[in-house]
Amino acid sequence: MIEIINLTKTYGQVVAVNNISFTVKKGEIVGFLGPNGAGKSTTMNIITGYLPSTAGTVKVDGYDILTQPKEVKKRIGYLPEAPPLYRDMTVTEYLRFVSSLKGVPKGKQQGQMADIMELVGLTDHRKRLIDNLSKGYRQRVGLAQALVGNPEVLILDEPTVGLDPKQIIEIRRVIKALAQERTIILSSHILPEVSAICERVVIINNGVIAAEDTPSRLSKDINQFLKLTMIILGDQEKIVKTIKTIDGVNYIEASAKTGDNAYKYVVESDIDVREQVFYKLAKAGCPILESKPSTMTLEDIFINVVTQGTEVS
């Protein structure tokens, strides 16, 4: 549905996006991750036709943004980082303006607007001046604007930025509902959000793609060793000694005391040692009260990938 081919964008001497390529299949929801200034917004501005690229191109549904911008723009709903709102209009007036701008037939405008406002939860605020709305509601108007014209592709640049936790959950619910019949690219630097919503993640850093995969597979790639967090009852020294004798364990750390004679331990190993740890500790008479693997979160992966990227460059 969306093909990004060798895209490069330079601002004078500064290279904002450097030869990136990726594709998004129809119906897919892709998270676009990166630290501030990595080139996320620039890429999105190019996909939507706001900025021209320096080299390379973007194709949406087979149409090239450079040669057939109108066809591309018809298929895209875009929520930029700062929602493009006319504050002197009411929500209804504004959405009607956007409807006409996007060429929604007059007869369909009313019904479509009502549906969209219902979906994003603006129905009760439809007669209010945008200027008087809170930031969260303005963000919703921005999202509503992107939905006008029922576009197949949605490009959302940090859709939940500046919202309170309750609103974030609600906007996420809306995006998930939308994802069922649309192709979505969503940028964010809030990682749990991406892992919660997206099927695939593209991590961009310094204008180049640093990693690209599903959230779960990305965590496997990076997770080369197993890390267990355990709470074990018994003498600390004895436990540490016992665990150290197990093949494959390369690190053990005793940390906080969690109860009478019970401590928290972190065990890192090259192979799966859970079985061995169980038997050895049972033999030593030190029962395991709790044990859980600590897999890397998307946050760890992100930091990992981004710092590696910086080291390389």
Partner: peptide
């Protein structure tokens, strides 16, 4: 200034 330019330029109008 307000960023509404983005809306105009990314809509299917010339």
């Amino acid at each position: 200034k307000n960023g509404t330019e983005v809306l105009l330029m990314t809509s299917p109008t010339s």
